[in-house]
């Protein structure tokens, strides 16, 4: 009688132990994957930093209306779109998209730069995102 009761209880404890071990293993794998193995996402500030550099280069080389060469010199993993406005108005003067990139992305970050052409003022807006 004792032996028949002992059998199912042991089985239950072993099953419970196994489930518990699997849970711990799963939790460990998840933790390791999240913190060590998973490639970290590029922080938004890094994107903005790249965008600021690109705009500074474009202004110093006077390439706001021909940014293709500068775009081509950036990393292949970045996509960008440059919009040049008259003054700070919403009147769009010109738009350029980096070759091989879509024209927009839901995760794009914006960077701005003011510039002058003699007595005329322009605002450059660069949208930058990681290529998918």
């Amino acid at each position: 009688m004792m032996a028949t009761m002992e059998g199912p209880r042991k089985g239950f404890i072993f099953s419970f132990d196994a489930v518990f071990a699997i849970l711990i293993a799963f939790f460990l794998i998840l933790l390791i994957y999240n913190n060590i193995l998973k490639e970290p996402a590029l922080p938004p500030v890094q994107l903005q930093r790249q965008g600021m550099d690109v705009l500074a280069v474009l202004e110093n080389l006077n390439r706001f209306y021909s940014p293709g060469t500068t775009f081509a010199e950036t990393s292949d993993s970045y996509c960008m779109r440059l919009e040049v406005y008259n003054g700070t108005s919403s009147v769009l003067d010109a738009t350029f998209v980096k070759a091989g990139c879509p024209s927009a992305d839901s995760d794009e970050r914006m960077v701005w730069r003011a510039t002058t052409f003699g007595n005329r003022f322009k605002t450059a807006k660069l949208a930058i995102w990681v290529k998918r």
């Binding site: 003054g87 700070t88 701005w112 003011a114 002058t116 003699g118 007595n119 003022f121 605002t123 807006k125």
Partner: peptide, 23 residues
């Protein structure tokens, strides 16, 4: 650059930068 009318340039630039900062 002596071709730039500095009086209007600086006056307009000041306003431009003020608007720019809104962006």
């Amino acid at each position: 650059n002596l071709t730039i009318n500095k009086s209007s340039f600086f006056s307009n630039y000041s306003r431009f930068i003020s608007n720019y900062s809104n962006n």
